[in-house]
Design a protein around this nucleic acid. Structure first.
Lengths: 351, 351
DNA sequence: TTGTATGCGTTATCAC
DNA sequence: GTGATAACGCATACAA
């Protein structure tokens, strides 16, 4: 019933060598006679030996040190993500991993690079950052990796960098999904979609818009997109103007943030409202969904992102091979499948 | 840079007691003077001590033994789930957990109970089963729990049992979600929805149907449901007949299995096809989505289910407190957001 | 009530 | 090339 798993001592005995020699083989330290290597390998196979990672880490006194760097500011989505990281940090202490969550000025690649350089001196095992499109960031990542520090990008990738993995959704796919749902909601009827983005220069927003374009066909068309700079006041003004100017608009797809403004416009609209699809489940989008002001929220599931980042960094630190990086499939929320509202005991915020 | 985390020895020294006394306090073994308890507690707080689980498990030579019992048969969904469990079993060996995946005759509570009883004698730490509505199963679960064996139900719950957790989707919510998406696709137009279930006596199917009913309102109505016994031939015949008999039907919601039959009917349909929403991403539903024969697949993400089951069982075995059991939020797939088709190297099947 | 000693399976350091 | 052996932090049997 309680048969013990074979240990390296068992292997050594079976192979007729000392423990140390067996260890040299499994850890590829070299300096072992070919003959011994073969005998140890055979013993490992016969016994079905698997290395006990817990014991290994214990003997090394291994302590993982990871850092996550998020943009500062009041953005609801990153607020949620920060809370998730901080929660993870607490529970990870039990497992000997120390996760520090830092914030850095948003949209400021230079600041990010400075922070990365400081962390590099800090004897850290792995770092997660929210990518941006700057070459200097790509270079900094290269430098970190050169020092053996694992780097994963989160939410937004850093093109041209050799980060270990990107953890996030495929934004083109997300845009196409939005387009498909909007098309479905038109049921073959004609319509015109108003796209709202933060900025076309933002890679993720541009990709989502491109995805939307991929799907729009037939008697659906696209209105000129609004650049709302992710600010709710600008979004509000822009959307209000566009809807007034073009009564043919039957749907709005917001690929960026600042959706509180969009929601206000919809709320104030007389008559039937357009189909509305937007991104990220945060307090105001949740309320709008519950109130029937919008139809769909595409959420990139920061919980899963955070979990994958931590798993990935640990895997890298253990040199257990490269990270498998399937994109995260975002969740599609309608009014009916919202997760139970969880009141975060830390921040008091409703998620 | 590499400051060591405090150990229980540090705590003991700081508290001015022996290691064993400190241990008695942290593990609540009793038989310690109140004064010592307080001093140890204070030292723990001051030092920020956290128990090293890896070391603890090592010293105990702990080896988790879990079992998962799935229904047999050729059902595509459970085939996928079995593959996932088997893959997990392989990679878990590294972490000292042994997971055996067994199958038992489907729809046969007695067979399940017999299997459970056998496992109980087998010195196992935790079991995952696909629930069914039978009292005998609930009793068997109670017996297992009484022996300190963790039990989680998967995909389908066992009502009235005191299992440690149910890991799966909320089927009422799933039905409501389907209803909402169908309503969205009607865009205010009138329509009639044809529900297809395996059997109304199946709890999960009934719940999904109830969820659908919750949402249907206004100028949408429900056709009488078809019971397809989860068999594609029966589903095919039933749906074909219903569609022929009632040309007013504008949508089909299939809450159960046997959808290959539904897909065949849709494929053969002249003119515009109804909106089709069904459950579980398996090879045939994936192909139908890609071919534009159906609109939405609601997938309960067996990957996440499996991961949660294992985490949960381990947590129980460690007595780290009860499982937190938020329902799994199913993924909604349209044609555009399908995950990359992965060819399972084990089975050769395309997922 | 309290304290000491041993072993868990690995890594790493030393001596042969 | 090879072989002993001391940590690592914890649980536990045993001694006081």
């Amino acid at each position: 019933m309680d048969r013990r798993l074979p240990t390296l001592s068992d292997v050594a005995r079976r192979a007729g060598v000392s423990y140390a020699t067996a260890d040299r083989v499994v850890n590829a330290r070299g300096g072992v006679a070919e003959k011994s290597v073969l005998r140890v390998r055979a013993a490992i196979r016969d016994l079905g030996y698997v290395r006990n990672v817990a014991a290994a880490n214990l003997s090394q006194g291994r302590l993982y040190r990871f850092a996550a760097i998020l943009p500062n500011g009041t953005n609801a989505f990153f607020g949620r993500m920060r809370a998730l990281f901080e929660g993870a940090a607490r529970s990870l202490l039990t497992e000997r991993v120390e996760l520090t969550v830092e914030t850095v000025e948003a949209f400021d690649p230079a600041a990010l690079v400075r922070r990365l350089e400081k962390l590099a001196e800090d004897c850290i095992d792995g770092i997660a950052i929210v990518g941006s499109d700057a070459d200097e960031v790509a270079e900094a990542i290269g430098a970190l990796r050169g020092q053996g520090i694992g780097v994963v990008t989160l939410v937004s990738d850093v093109p041209g960098s050799d980060r270990d993995a990107y953890v996030g959704i495929d934004n083109v796919v997300a845009g196409r999904t939005a387009g498909r749902l909007i098309a479905l909601a038109h049921g073959g009827q004609a319509g015109r979609i108003l796209p709202v983005v933060g900025a076309l220069s933002a890679r993720d927003h541009a990709e989502r818009l491109a995805g939307l374009r991929d799907v729009v066909a037939g008697n659906l068309s696209l209105a000129p997109e609004i650049e709302g700079r992710d600010r709710h006041d600008i979004v509000e003004a822009g959307v209000a103007r566009a809807l007034k100017a073009d009564p043919e608009i039957t749907a709005v797809y917001s690929a960026g943030a600042g959706n509180a403004g969009l929601i206000r416009v919809v709320e104030a609209l007389p008559g039937t409202r357009p189909v509305v699809v937007l991104h990220e489940l945060v307090p105001h989008s949740r309320r709008a969904l519950e109130a029937g002001l919008i139809d769909i929220v595409i959420d990139q599931r920061p919980e899963e992102g955070v979990a994958r980042v931590i798993d990935g960094l640990r895997q890298l630190a253990d040199r257990r091979g490269p990270i498998i990086a399937e994109p995260i499939v975002p969740t599609i929320y309608v009014r009916e499948n919202l997760p139970p509202a969880s009141n975060d005991p830390e921040t008091g915020k409703t998620t």
